[in-house]
Design a binder for these strands. Sequence first.
DNA 1: GCGACAG
DNA 2: ATCTTGTCGC
Length: 216
Amino acid sequence: MQWPTTAVEAIAVQEELRHRVDPTDAGSSPQYVAGLDVTYDGDRLAAAVVVLDWQTLGEVDRSVVLGKTAFPYVPGLFAFREVPALLEALERLSTTPDLLVCDGQGLAHPRRFGLACHLGVLTGVPAIGAAKTAFVGTHREPGVARGETAELLLDGEVVGAVLRTQHGVKPVYVSIGHRVSLPTAIAHVLHLTPRYRLPETTRAADHLSRKALADE
DNA sequence: GCGACAG
DNA sequence: ATCTTGTCGC
């Protein structure tokens, strides 16, 4: 498939792929967790994937790809901007992760097919979205304690959860990507946030992509 | 119609 | 995403 050039083409791709999302728990507890993130500088980018051991949260593998943006940033079509570079970075790993933690939304998307769904469906690997800010939906404010959640609602549907990962911090927006249920996705994000607001996976990938672009 | 809008 | 100071807390 040639990569979409226009918004109309990109939306058609989403409409076709969205039906392949599996919102249930497919695999067992993960052993290798991958964090994915991309840093930009104009049309240049660095896509990073860092794999952590689920138990120790220690790094076991990493990969960075330098490239150019494949699509402009358009809300709702964000995935088309960074999926090609992230797929390449995933292919270059010497480890096969069994969970992808994406820096963006999954089902919490206008067409229920955000970045985490896109990466999950294309790779077949269980995936979840953990975004720093809201994109779609409405919600009440979750309680102040770590672990408190609020349903993220869109058109009367639960499309994700607003999760407080540390006491008093701004919540994180968690949603299903592929082959992981929402309760499991929430549990996974809590496991990955023993100390900071964002998952260790996201933090590691963010640091790596920034450094790769700066050193380049 | 107008504003808001993952990164 | 990125532009941006100082400041509070561990």
